[in-house]
Amino acid sequence: MQRVNMIMAESPGLITICLLGYLLSAECTVFLDHENANKILNRPKRYNSGKLEEFVQGNLERECMEEKCSFEEAREVFENTERTTEFWKQYVDGDQCESNPCLNGGSCKDDINSYECWCPFGFEGKNCELDVTCNIKNGRCEQFCKNSADNKVVCSCTEGYRLAENQKSCEPAVPFPCGRVSVSQTSKLTRAETVFPDVDYVNSTEAETILDNITQSTQSFNDFTRVVGGEDAKPGQFPWQVVLNGKVDAFCGGSIVNEKWIVTAAHCVETGVKITVVAGEHNIEETEHTEQKRNVIRIIPHHNYNAAINKYNHDIALLELDEPLVLNSYVTPICIADKEYTNIFLKFGSGYVSGWGRVFHKGRSALVLQYLRVPLVDRATCLRSTKFTIYNNMFCAGFHEGGRDSCQGDSGGPHVTEVEGTSFLTGIISWGEECAMKGKYGIYTKVSRYVNWIKEKTKLT
């Protein structure tokens, strides 16, 4: 034993070699072989497995989906700052455009905790909710729209109204504003409101030439003092309507412009014939205590009207009353817009006519005020429907199939267009061939041609 100890002390290297040989010859039971080890760690190889990531292109799944990435790591994937920024906006807080917040056709661009709407022409605001041009839906104005110097929408209202708090709607500024039905039992019968379409306001006024200088022999019209197929109006439903009495009662109609003036057809009036105007009328054979009678003290036909040349060209006249009318729910003026808007309103496509005229061709006159909704007829169809001249200051309205029309005794009465609950004068009943005849239409004086003249002559002093 002493000898062994001496050998170990003198030859430590020998001992180490012996131990190493023993270990190498022993069977290893701690580690699995290569094949079995792979069965336990069965993990798919990654895209760049075996390579240094710093030297390969980034992978979106590896960089940002398996674990949260930084902007720089995302930049490695896209290799483009702009594309990385677009991805980053949604990656950080989701897609803010998912709810489609942009209105009126706006395009949404996502941002971090926010979004941006790219608005089409005519709109602005956070969600493109603000109209900035009158060309689109009248700028959301209830009545009139004008573009300011910086191309912003400025709404306005006709006389007797003021802008509401929203700067879009119009509200009454006087007790009985024009064009409004205020009798409670008839307010439910107000005709369907007309909503502004998209309009090209630059070209809204037709490029028409008034044929002022045409000389033409007097034409022989049949029954051209021209509501057939209409309905009984309720008291106060058309408070701007008046009836004219002269040699015979209810020979023509008219509309209240203001307390002192009536507008009617020029062919209705004769110099030297006494005319009485009755406002607030409903049943011409009954006294309903809503009527107001006034005498006409002055007749002003349009300066281009000449019955000797043509009885229905420039067929418009103004009547001055001896005493002002007292405005109330049964006696209310009709609204008159400017030339541009009167023309736009007419193009809405349908209007209402009213009167006490004959209820059928050569038949009896109506006792109760009649009204009828009539569609506008395109000019080409209008011209083809008659052998008589249709001037540019006239328009056609009615039904091709016949059966409904204005008729004798309705002449001078109103053709009105309702705009968001307020009625505007767009025409004056003038003439036609018979009444409600198939293929024939009622012919009306186009008020847009005469609004400046009306307003100039009827100013209240």
Rank of each mutant, 00 (worst) to 15 (best):
V4L: 12
I7T: 11
I7S: 07
M8N: 12
A9K: 08
A9G: 14
E10Q: 07
S11F: 14
G21A: 14
Y22L: 07
L23T: 03
A26W: 02
T29N: 13
V30C: 05
F31E: 15
D33P: 05
D33G: 13
E35H: 06
E35W: 06
N36Q: 10
A37G: 15
N38C: 03
I40V: 13
I40Y: 11
N42I: 12
R46H: 05
Y47N: 15
Y47K: 05
N48M: 13
N48I: 05
S49H: 12
S49R: 07
S49N: 15
S49P: 14
S49T: 13
L52Q: 15
L52M: 15
Q57Y: 06
L60K: 15
L60G: 15
R62D: 03
E67L: 04
K68L: 06
C69A: 03
S70I: 05
S70K: 14
S70H: 15
S70Q: 15
F71G: 15
R75Y: 08
E76L: 15
V77S: 15
E79H: 13
E82H: 07
R83W: 05
T84N: 10
T84K: 10
E86R: 15
F87D: 15
W88K: 15
Q90R: 09
V92N: 10
D93G: 06
D93Q: 05
D93P: 05
G94M: 08
C97F: 00
S99E: 07
S99I: 05
C102G: 01
C102I: 00
N104L: 01
G105P: 00
G105M: 04
S107W: 04
C108G: 00
C108S: 00
C108R: 01
D111F: 08
I112D: 06
N113R: 10
N113I: 04
E116P: 02
P120K: 07
F121C: 05
F121P: 15
F121T: 15
F123S: 03
E124L: 04
G125P: 01
G125N: 01
K126C: 03
D131S: 14
C134P: 02
C134S: 02
K137D: 12
C141N: 01
E142T: 09
Q143H: 11
F144C: 00
F144L: 03
F144M: 04
K146G: 07
K146N: 08
N147T: 14
S148N: 12
S148W: 06
A149F: 10
A149Q: 11
N151M: 13
N151C: 04
K152V: 09
C155A: 00
C155R: 02
C155T: 00
C157T: 00
T158S: 07
E159H: 06
G160Y: 02
Y161M: 04
Y161L: 02
R162N: 09
R162H: 10
R162M: 08
A164Y: 03
E165R: 10
S169F: 06
S169R: 11
C170W: 01
P175A: 11
P175H: 09
F176D: 02
C178S: 00
C178A: 00
C178Y: 00
V181H: 09
S182I: 08
Q185H: 13
T186G: 09
A192P: 05
E193H: 11
T194K: 07
T194I: 11
V195W: 11
P197K: 13
D198M: 12
Y201F: 12
Y201P: 10
N203V: 07
N203Q: 09
N203C: 03
A207Q: 12
E208H: 11
E208V: 09
I210G: 13
D212L: 07
D212A: 06
N213A: 08
I214Y: 13
T215R: 10
Q216E: 10
S217I: 12
T218W: 10
Q219T: 10
F221G: 07
F221V: 07
N222Q: 10
F224G: 12
F224W: 12
T225C: 05
V228I: 13
G229W: 14
G230E: 11
E231A: 12
D232K: 10
A233Q: 06
A233F: 07
K234Y: 14
G236Q: 04
Q237H: 08
Q237V: 08
F238N: 03
P239L: 00
P239T: 02
W240L: 00
W240R: 02
Q241A: 13
V242S: 00
G246Y: 06
G246Q: 05
V248G: 12
A250L: 08
F251Q: 08
F251H: 11
C252H: 01
G254N: 00
G254F: 01
S255G: 05
I256N: 00
V257C: 02
V257F: 02
N258F: 02
N258H: 04
E259L: 04
W261F: 08
W261G: 00
V263L: 09
V263A: 04
V263Y: 00
T264D: 01
A265E: 00
H267C: 03
C268N: 01
V269N: 00
V269P: 02
T271V: 07
T271Y: 06
G272E: 07
T276K: 07
T276Q: 08
T276W: 07
V278F: 04
A279D: 01
N283D: 11
E285H: 12
T287Y: 10
H289R: 07
H289V: 08
E291D: 04
K293T: 11
R294T: 01
V296Y: 00
I297G: 04
I297L: 10
I299S: 13
I299C: 05
P301F: 11
P301S: 09
H302L: 01
N304V: 03
A307Q: 13
A307P: 11
A307C: 05
A308E: 13
I309V: 14
K311R: 13
Y312Q: 07
Y312D: 02
H314Y: 09
I316K: 00
I316A: 01
I316L: 07
L318D: 00
L319A: 05
E320K: 03
E323C: 05
P324I: 03
L325G: 00
L325I: 03
V326N: 09
L327N: 00
L327G: 02
N328S: 12
V331I: 09
V331M: 01
T332E: 03
T332C: 06
I334E: 01
I336S: 01
D338F: 03
E340I: 13
T342N: 03
T342H: 03
T342Q: 03
N343M: 06
N343R: 08
I344H: 11
F345N: 00
G349D: 14
G351L: 01
G351E: 01
G351I: 02
G351S: 06
Y352L: 12
V353T: 09
V353M: 04
G355E: 04
W356E: 02
F360N: 14
F360S: 14
H361A: 06
K362G: 13
A366E: 14
L367N: 13
L367W: 13
L369S: 13
Y371R: 14
Y371M: 15
L372E: 11
R373Q: 14
V374L: 04
P375V: 08
P375L: 08
L376P: 04
V377I: 14
V377M: 06
R379Y: 14
R379E: 07
A380N: 08
C382V: 02
C382H: 02
L383I: 09
L383D: 06
S385F: 14
S385H: 15
T386D: 04
K387F: 05
K387G: 09
F388H: 14
F388Q: 13
Y391L: 15
M394Y: 04
F395T: 02
A397H: 02
A397Q: 01
A397F: 02
G398M: 05
F399C: 07
F399G: 10
F399A: 09
H400W: 09
H400Y: 13
E401K: 14
G402N: 11
G403F: 10
G403M: 14
R404D: 13
R404M: 06
D405A: 08
S406K: 13
S406C: 09
C407F: 12
G409F: 12
G409Q: 12
D410C: 11
G413Y: 15
P414S: 06
H415Q: 00
H415R: 00
E418K: 11
V419S: 05
V419D: 00
E420T: 09
T422H: 03
T422A: 05
S423W: 15
F424A: 02
F424R: 00
L425D: 01
L425P: 01
I428A: 00
W431M: 12
G432R: 14
G432A: 14
E433G: 11
M437H: 08
K438G: 14
G439A: 06
K440S: 10
Y441M: 10
I443H: 04
I443Y: 06
T445S: 05
T445V: 11
V447R: 00
S448P: 02
S448E: 07
S448V: 03
V451N: 03
W453Y: 02
W453N: 01
K455W: 05
K455E: 05
K457Q: 08
K459V: 14
L460E: 12
L460W: 12
T461N: 15
